[in-house]
Design a protein around this nucleic acid. Structure first.
Lengths: 345, 345
DNA sequence: AGAAATTGTTCAAACGTTTGCACAAATGAT
DNA sequence: ATCATTTGTGCAAACGTTTGAACAATTTCT
């Protein structure tokens, strides 16, 4: 059938072990033998059988990433794809393959991971944190399999993970508005049970306090990571006797709702209200007007996750590796925030 | 180290082959033996080593999908992710794993595919068609590896592929506008060297002809699959002495540019111009106003591609399988087209 | 009752690699 | 010249499965 190491060996007049050693650049092989063998490989179109190699070397040179649930929220797709791109790129660069598995129920996720890790099809896993994969984390921890979390686990703060500094990001976003002269700044948050909502709220509060600005609780609303949340928040905000002149919004999609709400109510962005949001998905750039957003480096998040995982695979046992990686964010300024409010009374 | 088939065999008091046959539900195994072995497996937490299995069975039960280039066009992410979701879901259902590989240059793509297929790490490949992977197609064809193309190849019309009927889709889109009473309908196309542009143009033309409507060449503009294209098209269209009252736009992203252009020029959608576009990405739903779009069933495209590939892998040799799969599209009507123009003079 | 077919299990070879050990040849040290 | 190293290669066992062939025990057919 397909050409094996033995075929190469025979044709080159050496033993299979020699061929194998050529493949692994063993130093004991002479220049000429090496060249001869390589020539034959080329001629025969030889490619090593990865399965056979894995079997004996007890390593697969591949990792898997578990896609959370159906994750109906389609807009998340941009996020995941970008992440996967980062993962795949760095993994391939390190000579690793990436396997994608889609979770159904949590139980199914555990089974999938279990089959892949215990069946030695992959060497490690990357988890895209979606609230409740505790079971999966539990499984990986107790079985001592290498894995890394994208996001942050409050329950297991010590596990290898890659994340942003969301507190700082929100602080920066708020600071940006303050530096433009805004004094009345509101916050549109996500679900309060999400760590990211809480972290960002914290950064917002800190920035306000530091600047000695007023913080009113009617200027803070909670919602989902959905457009409607932003939309609804607007009818609320704009009916207040004292309205904010700027808003920090927890996510680009929510911002889109904010924009639509303001438009329908007849307000203009940024003149009537400035907006800063998070994640810098393509929709932030594509909306009208384009929205200032904190770029959280999604690709980088994936890239780093892969790097950290592979490192931990290759040095299993060593514990000197950084446990928590923080990916830097940066403010991308767009039309939605290029307006300085008139000096208040 | 980890528990093997021999450990199970010993503990259950049978031979390894018996255990193997239990695993494969061989009919020659007695009820009781089978149960006993299963119990032991459970007890020991046994998982078959996939590599060892692959090695002897000469099949990996996995496929790969090659992500085209860096594909900087981030918005494509939504498209790809949705496709991948479809692929992964169906593959997992059929007991297959999915491996993602990211192409750099075309040459690197060939090498990656070559390593994966010749190295017997995967049984087949799914290609996401991006203009010029002819080299990859060439390679797969000459080596007789199972693969399927998402999209259509003009050069190799006979290969296994999954696609939409873009001519018909454009016909339907145009028909929709006609049925609303529009008589002057323009077309914003993509790059003319893309098959999809040409197919959609063709459907548009056919619908116009069939309805006996005037077709003016100044009502047809070409561009890229980018926002700017749509934007630029608007300054052109709206300066014509005789303007169309409706537009068929080749892609949602381009529509977004169209929308922005119209907005800046002070026109309203749908009152001044109705819009219908293609792909039904989330941005079509999220824009203001939401845009009527032809949903091309991206998830389904992926799902079907995976199904077709796996089928062809399992029945290699048979040639009775459908060569070309057409995924149905459907019109999703939104605000951008709910307006009937006043009767023309 | 004996032959033939069926049922349940084991043996051993194979899948294509890697790698510790052995060994011969070449080189270097004395 | 002799012995100790170094260099280059080959042998054979191992990795954890699957599977054809063999065989014994049981059942079915005449």
């Amino acid at each position: 059938m397909s050409v094996t190491i033995k075929d190469v060996a025979k044709k080159a007049g050496v033993s299979p072990s020699t061929v194998s050693r050529v493949l692994s650049n063993n130093t004991r092989i002479s220049r000429e033998t090496s060249q001869k063998v390589r020539d034959v490989m080329e001629e025969l179109g030889y490619h090593p059988n990865i399965m056979a190699k894995s079997l004996v070397s007890r390593t697969t040179e591949s990792i898997c990433v578990i896609l959370p649930k159906p994750a109906e929220e389609l807009f998340l797709n941009m996020f995941f794809m970008e992440l996967i791109r980062g993962i795949v790129t760095q993994a391939n660069r390190s000579g690793y393959d990436v396997l994608i598995s889609s979770g159904g129920s949590e139980q199914e996720e555990v089974e999938a991971v279990s089959r892949l890790l215990k069946g030695k099809r992959v060497d490690g896993a990357i988890l895209l944190y979606s609230r409740k994969d505790d079971q999966v984390v539990e499984f990986l921890k107790t079985n001592q399999f290498p894995f890394v979390l994208v996001g942050r686990s409050e329950k297991f703060p010590e596990i290898l993970s890659v994340d942003n500094d969301n507190v700082m990001a929100a602080y920066d976003a708020t600071k940006h508005l303050i530096s433009l002269g805004h004094q009345r700044i509101g916050f549109v948050s996500g679900p309060p049970n999400h760590i990211v909502s809480r972290d960002r709220l914290k950064g917002y509060v800190t920035a306000l306090e530091e600047a000695g600005l007023e913080m009113r609780k009617e200027w803070i609303v909670e919602g989902e990571f959905l457009q409607e949340s932003g939309y609804r928040a607007m009818s609320f905000f704009m009916n207040l006797p004292e309205r904010p002149t700027a808003l920090v919004v927890v996510d680009d999609l929510v911002s889109l709702g904010v924009l639509r709400g303001l438009h329908e109510l007849g307000y203009k962005v940024p003149e009537d209200l400035c907006i800063v949001s998070f994640n810098n998905l393509s929709i932030a750039e594509l909306s009208s007007p384009p929205v200032t957003s904190i770029d959280i480096g999604i690709y980088n998040l994936g890239y780093t996750a892969s790097q950290a995982l592979i490192q931990s695979i290759q040095h299993v046992g060593d514990r000197q590796f950084q446990k928590r990686h923080i990916i830097p964010h940066r403010l991308v300024i767009r039309e939605s925030s290029i307006y300085t409010p008139p000096k208040p009374s």
